[in-house]
Write a protein that binds this DNA or RNA. Structure first.
Lengths: 198, 198
DNA sequence: CCTACCGATCGGTAGG
DNA sequence: CCTACCGATCGGTAGG
């Protein structure tokens, strides 16, 4: 785990915002420094490389999604175990992470592939595992007849890209707040899989 | 309209592939040239700037989506006028464009914001107009009771980001072919909006 | 389409 | 966190 000072976190936050707007490759180390009112070279007092900043952001985002999904799953499963409720909780958790920090989520979704080496491989594995939660849940739901018979891999890709798309267009001062968006996304996502009106 | 020679098109194709993989900012002019086995500077015999290449790709992609949507709309409307059928045709058209040229579509979806000036403004307007097709169709469908009462702007964002997400993960040699994917995406998209099983 | 070259900017280091 | 600096690479031009 990286050392985490207040300044270090300010760097991540400034970088998240820039990476989301202009992309990782389109953002220079000096752009990040300028946002913090320091010299470009001064950034290296806190950070060993530009990629380390991306790594830090992506790691924190991945953890946020995983923690939210873990909590959603235990809560929903302990209450009913119904695949419909569990998927609803998972969708709500995902939307919650995105709306709580759209910069963080946006970088995780769109910029992770600029990572190299182990960080890239590890991130890919975490992304796969996260998507697997959706896929397995859909498989289970189809198996017990809670969901319409559909291709679980395709359905989870459809759903997850829709949820991730939110990280691209969500604005804090938008027309709909996080809860209203979550409600609608749960409705849309479940209806796509459940088929009959509930 | 730009001059279109065979070589010019090869440049676009090589660039599309690179832009989709590494992003516009992460791809150098020399990367594109290398893919064509020429010198970096030689590219400027065919092209006035790196951004012009992006502009050309984005314009062609935008036109492909518009043409496909126009055709889908006239065909579906002339047959029934049913919002469900019209949306099905629109989804199928969109998936068709993406699977026919995922590089072209991927660059349009993810790299258009690197455009500047008029090209950026024009592209933004075309994207808005395209999304408006979905939104209006959903509004109409809700109004006549063909779709579940839902927020049309949110529903169209949900749907369109799911469709665009396909440009990120679709591979020509993947498990499912274009038609199967289109079938499933139509099912998922319609079910999300129609609510009761058909 | 090539060679030769341009100024600007890139990520990063040295030494304080 | 700063100044001063590094080699490499960037998009692009001149002249053939």
């Amino acid at each position: 785990m990286a050392i985490e000072t207040a300044r270090r976190r300010e760097i991540d936050d400034a970088a998240s915002s820039l990476f989301r707007e202009r992309g990782y490759a389109g953002t220079s180390v000096r752009d990040i420094a300028r946002a913090l009112d320091i010299q470009g070279a001064s950034l290296y007092a806190h950070v060993s490389s530009k990629e380390e900043v991306l790594r830090s952001i992506v790691d924190r985002a991945a953890a946020a999604f995983e923690v939210a999904a873990d909590r959603a799953d235990t809560e929903a499963e302990s209450s009913t175990g119904d695949p419909v409720d569990r998927l609803a909780a998972l969708i709500r958790a995902h939307v919650g992470v995105v709306t709580a920090d759209p910069e963080l989520a946006g970088v995780f979704v769109n910029e992770w592939h600029f990572l190299t080496g182990d960080a890239r491989a590890t991130t890919l594995a975490r992304r796969d595992a996260y998507e697997q939660r959706f896929r397995t849940l859909i498989e289970d739901g189809v198996a017990v007849g809670a969901f319409v018979p559909t291709d679980p891999a395709l359905a989870s890709s459809f759903l997850l890209t829709a949820l991730n798309g939110l990280a691209g267009w969500y604005r804090v001062d938008g027309r709909l707040g996080p809860d209203r968006i979550a409600d609608h996304y749960v409705d849309l996502g479940l209806r796509a899989l459940v088929g009959n009106d509930r």
